[in-house]
Simulated scan of single mutants.
Amino acid sequence: MKKLLPTLIASAIFATTAATAAPVQQSAQQNAQQGQAMQQQAKIEMTDELLQKFMVAMNDVQKVSQKYSEQFQNAENAEEAQAIQQKAQQEMIAAVTGAGLNPDEYNAVIQRVQQDPQLQQRLQEMTE
């Protein structure tokens, strides 16, 4: 079980990053929105309840990622790959909201886990 958490987190990060990757369209408005999202993420308190929801969401996101991974890799063209990616993203968002989180909360936990060894340990202990 100890090896499972880093794998799940890595999968969740990959899945979230892959699923939310969009055509590059950086504008001042998007940059402002990203800045606001990062400020909101810093304010989210890492309660046990939030982390429990995160663990459920992460597990479900990983399942969606696995479900679409092969299809995405075997896409015959960019349009097909994009359609698969969009479908996977919709299912991942549904998985996150189904676990009781919004995508910003989910992404905030992922970012904090990457940066905070104590939070990593806390999640590890929750999985045992």
Rank of each mutant, 00 (worst) to 15 (best):
A95L: 00
Q124D: 11
Q82R: 15
V109M: 02
M92K: 03
E125S: 08
V96E: 06
M126Q: 11
E79I: 12
A99W: 04
S65E: 05
Q118K: 12
Q86S: 13
A94W: 00
S69M: 10
N102V: 06
G98M: 04
P103I: 09
A78G: 01
Q89D: 10
Q121F: 05
T97Q: 03
S69V: 03
N74D: 01
R122T: 06
E105G: 01
M92A: 01
E70L: 10
E105S: 06
Q121N: 11
Q82D: 09
Q111R: 12
Q66K: 14
N77F: 00
E79Q: 08
G98P: 09
V109I: 08
Q89T: 14
Q66I: 13
I110N: 14
E125K: 11
E79T: 08
I84M: 00
Q115V: 05
S69G: 13
A88W: 05
M126V: 03
E80Q: 15
Q73K: 12
D116R: 09
Q71L: 14
L123T: 03
S65M: 05
K67S: 09
Q89A: 14
E70S: 14
Q121A: 11
Q71A: 15
Q120F: 03
A75G: 12
Q86F: 10
Q115E: 02
Q120Y: 05
D116H: 13
Q85A: 12
E91N: 04
S69Y: 15
N107A: 14
Q66F: 11
Y106E: 06
Q89N: 13
V109A: 02
V96I: 15
I110Y: 08
Y68A: 05
P103E: 00
V113N: 02
L101K: 00
E91Y: 04
Q66M: 14
L101G: 02
N77V: 04
K87G: 04
D116K: 07
V96R: 01
K87V: 10
Q120R: 06
A83M: 11
Q89H: 10
Y106P: 08
E76V: 10
A99E: 04
A94I: 01
V64W: 00
A83K: 11
Q73F: 12
A78F: 07
L101Q: 05
Q90I: 01
Q82S: 10
